[in-house]
Design a binder for these strands. Structure first.
Length: 385
DNA sequence: AAAAAAAACAACCGCACCACA
DNA sequence: GTGTGGTGCGGTTGTTTTTTT
């Protein structure tokens, strides 16, 4: 494949954009649309390469961009999606309206990553750095099966990505708006596609089949029946495929995320180390709607209907009485919030609180339910997958 | 008040993918 | 089937701003 030497041309300006340049670019795009980015700089009278213009427009000048501090909810969404998707910023950006992938990426690198690291969580794998989880046989098995499940899910995501691309193509023929970058506007594209296409999502059957495995096997043994039920469940789960490309990494991330969340809660170790300001924020988060000291209850609350419609931050707020976000993120931050919040909350840690071994597999179940719900309630043609 | 360090942000770079000739 | 142009995406670097000493 030949690559065009976009910015290597002599005489083209690099570095920070001046207000004058911004104005020129804005004025041109507003009037003509961007059309071909390569041709745009000349037409707009800019001494920039087309790529630079595109980036400037996409990440800064676009009118539908929200700038400024990330809200707590946005932070939570990023963490959750990163645990699931890894560094697929454009996919994550799809579910953060008005935020660009670049902005999210920067925010992750400068804020969230460090915050997780301080909490003793590897921001790459979302695993605790001192991982003493996989000690027993049962747990190892469980972890392996979770990994299997993650592979399965990843394969599904990959397949869905193909559908998305096709959908995009179709939708593009319906609507071509100048200056519509894919990363941050793909949600809108997806919405359009959903509106155009009335057929049900193809993957639903598979998801539901998978979804059905948990209740079938765990509820039979009872959630308090101990590890045997969970392991047996996982044993029933046979991943249909492992033909992955990107998804190997995502699978690892997803699976380790599960392990991490559960392991964290199970071991009840670690503690939160946060900036003062952040601590207030996170405290507020935990005490807002959900019992902060009991992350398992949050988990239980996360079992939401499969067909809950498009997933947006707004919908997340309302899903299951507004406990989805709190519960999901609480998994990640469970031990820290447990400690941080238990005092103010007055709730004791003597209940399941994530420390009870009997809830270990129940937690897994609910975690995967929540993942499923997240995935399934996302726009089915979302580029996220 | 000044210098140094750290944090935050914006932009660039290069690879990969896709469509088209 | 192959080459090329256009674009998306993720990683990285450079610059600016803020905080600390």
């Amino acid at each position: 494949m030949g690559r065009s030497p976009c910015c290597d041309k002599v005489g083209l300006k690099k570095g920070p954009w001046t207000p004058e340049e911004d104005q020129k670019l804005l004025a041109y795009i507003e009037e003509h649309g961007h059309g071909s980015w390569r041709a745009l700089p000349t037409k707009a009278g800019l001494q920039r390469c087309g790529k630079s213009c595109r980036l400037r427009w996409t990440n800064y000048l676009r009118p539908d961009i929200k700038r400024g501090k990330f809200s707590l909810q946005e932070e939570q969404t990023i963490i959750q999606l990163h645990a699931l998707l890894g560094n697929r910023w454009s996919a994550i950006a799809t579910h953060l309206p008005k935020r660009t992938d670049n902005e999210i990426k920067n925010y992750w690198n400068t804020h969230l990553k460090k915050r997780l690291a301080k909490m003793g969580i590897d921001p790459v794998t979302h695993k605790p750095k001192s991982d003493a989880l996989l000690s027993s046989d049962g747990q190892s098995k469980n972890a392996a099966n979770l990994s299997h499940m993650a592979q399965w899910e990843s394969a599904r995501l990959e397949a869905e990505a193909r559908l998305v691309r096709e959908s995009k193509l179709r939708s593009n023929s319906f609507n071509h708006h100048p200056g519509t970058p894919s990363a941050s506007n793909s949600a809108a594209v997806g919405a359009k596609t959903a509106a155009v296409s009335s057929s049900p999502p193809v993957y639903l059957d598979v998801l539901k089949a998978w979804h059905g495995v948990w209740p079938k096997s765990t509820e039979g043994g009872g959630s308090s029946g101990g590890g045997g039920g969970g392991v047996a469940v996982a044993g029933d789960l046979e991943s249909p495929t492992s033909t992955l490309s990107y998804s190997e990494n995502a699978a690892a991330v997803a699976s380790t995320a599960v392990i991490d969340f559960v392991g964290n809660s199970g071991s009840c170790e670690g503690g939160i180390i946060k900036d003062e300001g952040d601590q207030q924020e996170w405290k507020g988060m935990g005490s807002s709607t959900q019992l902060p000291g009991s992350f398992t209850s949050a988990l239980h609350d996360m079992a939401v209907p499969m067909d809950s419609g498009a997933w947006t931050p707004e919908s997340l707020k309302t899903v299951n009485g507004g406990h989805f976000i709190e519960g999901f993120t609480e998994l990640l931050l469970s031990n820290s919030t447990n400690r941080t919040l238990s005092d103010t909350d007055g709730g004791g840690d003597s209940d399941n609180g994530g420390c009870s071994g009997s809830d270990y597999y129940e937690d897994n179940k609910n975690y995967w339910n929540s993942i499923l719900n997240l995935v399934n309630s996302s726009p089915y043609d979302s580029p996220m997958f």
